[in-house]
Design a protein around this nucleic acid. Structure first.
Lengths: 247, 247
DNA sequence: TAGTGGTCTAGACCACTAT
DNA sequence: TAGTGGTCTAGACCACTAG
């Protein structure tokens, strides 16, 4: 295990350690079942306290990359299902992680007054304006999902003037408005495609769709986006890692 | 905030603090938006170190119950979607959490040799035996899901002799075999009901179904169960809370 | 300036596992 | 007995926010 830390960097030490080990697991340099340095070893290698090393391993454990056995050690977890750790990331990032090339076609982009349900989800008034975007999401140039998104205008003035077709929305919010995503609530359900959505996605009506309804919150707990994504069931499956006691 | 800890208990202090605050939030004694004691205050109240208080708040944050703002404080998060924190729990526990009465009808319970895919998911050989259970899951006496589950025989001898109809499977594994669940990988997808499943669930063929494919791992990283659950889309939606940097 | 959360240290004791 | 992870302490400095 070879690990050099940048102590001047603003990136916390535990995050550097976490990132390096995760990189080695993803690059298969640390193979499934292999031992990861123990907390005390890692602390010694990196010249940090045990608590800092522990924090790095804890994050890896919560992401499902390693597991720990008391009295024995820390080991790289075997993935049984093809689970891409589904963090809080946008479409663009997720598709790249799956080795696909994402692209987007904007079908609708306008300002409107918030419908009651949307206003409630975003924590705003129905008199307030929202951006309403409908986007067709493609992977390797073939339709994958239809997206219906709402964002509050007051927090993102002129968002509709940005290049939404080629830039990741979450990236724009972070770089242009300084709003970073922190948390999301998701509801997943199944349905059959309506004629309109079937046409947009180039599938037969009544084909199965996976609906992901997501409300995204910023670092300061602002509801930033309410979005429903209708995925073609034949091309998309959502993956999660669940852990007990995510402490 | 009124918090008394049992220092003799085997339950860790941070878990007691976490549990008590979570209880108050779920009972609406701590209302959305309300301030939770700061880390230092909580440490003072409970007579623990700040790191211990912090560990309790961290768990609440990862579960989406609170959010923290640097320089300001810790607050109870507003839930926008009707998200029941979907931890690593079984059907029985989940339904009770949703205020429904779960019941189960066993359709199939036998031993068989593991199919290749199942063997791979459970990390066993195809020559090894598995229990194969098919169960109809009901909520408030109405069909909700069809379940197809596989567990390795060698780790759970005589499991088929247990009372699977009335007891939670996960509870049996824990109390009878000392195997506690720690982690699961899940894949969610949408499909249309086949004739057989439609009949079992009392819905029309080709109705939408939500499939949850789950592989569950124990504390010692044993693959304990591979299960596919076919939920009626009209009666079930899966909910998640995602957080960035689950450290 | 006072208070907050974010990070980090250098220890400690415990229960557990393997040899 | 030696090593592991789980828990806990009593501090410290930092960047940030509010009044």
């Amino acid at each position: 295990m070879n690990l050099t830390l940048d102590r001047i960097s603003s990136v916390p030490l535990y995050a550097q350690i976490h990132g390096e080990i995760r990189r080695q697991i993803e690059a298969d340099q640390l193979k499934a079942g292999a031992a990861v340095p123990s907390e005390r070893e890692l602390a010694e290698i990196c010249k940090v306290s045990r608590m800092t090393a522990r924090q790095a391993l804890n994050a890896l454990k919560n992401e499902g990359f390693v597991y720990q056995e008391r009295g024995i050690g820390t080991f790289v977890a075997k993935r049984k299902l093809d689970v891409h750790t589904r963090n809080l990331i946008g479409f663009t990032e997720e598709m790249r992680g799956r080795g696909l090339t994402p692209s987007t076609k904007i079908l609708l982009a306008r300002r409107e007054n918030a419908a009651q349900e949307v206003a409630q989800e975003l924590g705003i008034e129905t008199a307030d304006e929202v951006f309403h975007f409908q986007r067709l999401r493609l992977a390797d140039d073939s339709p994958l999902a239809f997206e219906d998104a709402f964002l509050p205008v007051k927090h993102f003035p002129d968002l509709d003037a940005k290049n939404l077709e080629n830039e990741s929305l979450y990236k724009i919010l972070e770089t242009e408005y300084g709003v970073a995503m922190r948390r999301a609530e998701e509801i997943l359900e199944a349905t059959c495609a309506s004629k309109e959505i079937a046409r947009a996605l180039a599938i037969k009506p009544k084909s199965a769709l996976l609906i992901v309804h997501r409300v995204v919150f910023s670092e300061s707990n602002l509801a930033v986006e309410s979005v429903r994504t209708f995925y073609r069931a034949d091309r998309y499956r959502a993956t999660f890692v669940l852990t007990k006691n995510a402490v």
